[in-house]
């Protein structure tokens, strides 16, 4: 309860900070003819794809002759209007990556907390409309001492860097899903005297079906390394193992995916299934020292504004064991910013 209270306080605090950010640089959601905001991933005003270069708006219409005389007309050489910014498709469902990439020079930042005391941070930037780089901390990596240890603990903070590249939806041909090839790797992390690293190579495709539904399907190829006193007994020496040495390529591969539905203009329901490594330091065999565990998450994303979203839901760290006792309720808040993109566009003019 105390943890939940802390979590809620942090979410409220970050939300308040975010609200204090300047509003004018944020594009508002374009209204649809029915009066409801358009769904992310669509743009009713034009047909720009996320990878398209920004279009320049036409000059405003000339005032009719009967318009009152303006003694202080605006200078004709005024700064051109900012081009319309398309809605941003999120790079993650809840915990798994999507095939959508951030537009060029767009910043994305996400903070998350859960009832188990886990805290995460994720910051990314879009690169040239075809790639994305990010650094993050994750609380998904877990550890156990040995085979008799039934409760796994999370290792945190576990710092990772990620790089993804791909093509946007409908970019190459009509109905082509967005596809992204991603690589995520952790820095070496020390916990309880053991050093570990993880790496994940993903290929994921995402496709909108109408403006209310999207689906994400992908595969991940995992690897990890673990070093320390991995054997029980006296006079044992430290040694290291890697996942690719103790597992077959088939064991390293895992499919993942997710779906998102938009029942209301600003709200999405999200479900995803992913995987996360678990280290068991003194399990009997090397094959059991590094294993992949399925993680199921479901929740809701509410778009407070086009630059801010709040997500909340449930995450089950090891759905394979159907252990709901380890399930956590999480809250996440994410922000996006076109500020750098605007600066680059200005520098180009």
């Amino acid at each position: 309860m105390k943890q939940l209270g802390r979590s809620l306080m942090l979410v409220v605090a970050t939300t308040a900070v975010a609200r204090a950010q300047p509003q004018p640089d944020v594009p508002t959601l374009p209204p649809d003819p029915g009066g409801a905001p358009a769904a992310p991933g669509t743009d009713p005003t034009a047909d720009p794809q996320p990878g398209d270069p920004p279009t320049v708006q036409a000059d405003p219409p000339v005032a009719p002759p009967e318009a009152p005389y303006d003694p202080y007309p605006a200078p004709s050489a005024s700064v051109p209007d900012e081009p319309p910014r398309p809605p941003i498709n999120m790079p993650e469902v809840l915990t798994t990556p999507t095939g959508f990439l951030l537009p060029a020079a767009v910043f994305y930042t996400k903070f998350g907390l859960d009832t188990g005391g886990g805290a995460t941070f994720d910051s990314r930037i879009g690169l040239g409309d075809v790639a994305e780089f990010g650094v993050a901390t994750t609380d998904a990596i877990r550890q156990r001492q040995d085979d008799s240890d039934e409760d796994s603990d999370r290792i945190q903070p576990y710092f990772t860097a990620s790089f993804r590249l791909g093509v946007g939806e409908d970019r190459l041909f009509k109905h082509q899903p967005a596809v992204a090839l991603g690589f995520r790797k952790s820095f070496e992390t020390k916990s309880e005297g053991y050093e570990s690293r993880i790496a994940e190579l993903t290929l994921v495709a995402s496709k909108h079906f109408g403006d209310k539904f999207a689906m994400h399907v992908g595969g991940a190829f995992w690897d990890a390394s673990l070093a320390g006193q991995l054997d029980s007994g006296d006079d044992v020496e430290d040694r290291s193992i890697t996942f690719h040495d103790v597992a077959t390529p088939k064991d390293q591969f895992r499919p993942f995916g997710g779906i998102q539905a938009r029942p209301l203009p600003r709200s999405l329901i999200l479900i995803d299934l992913g995987w996360a490594p678990e280290f068991c330091y003194q399990c009997a065999t090397d094959a059991r020292k590094i294993r992949l565990r399925p993680v199921l998450s479901w929740g809701v994303r509410y778009e407070v504004a086009s630059w801010m979203r709040i997500e909340s839901g449930v995450r089950v760290p090891d759905i394979g064991d159907a252990n709901l006792l380890n399930a956590q309720i999480f809250g996440q808040v994410s922000f996006t910013s076109w500020g750098l993109r605007r600066a680059i566009d200005r520098a180009k003019q």
Binding site: K185, I198, A199, L201, T242, D245, P249
Partner: peptide, 14 residues
Amino acid sequence: PAGRGGIVQWDIRL
């Protein structure tokens, strides 16, 4: 050498 599955030794470079 890490072998073909050894992606833990790949790197990200900026």
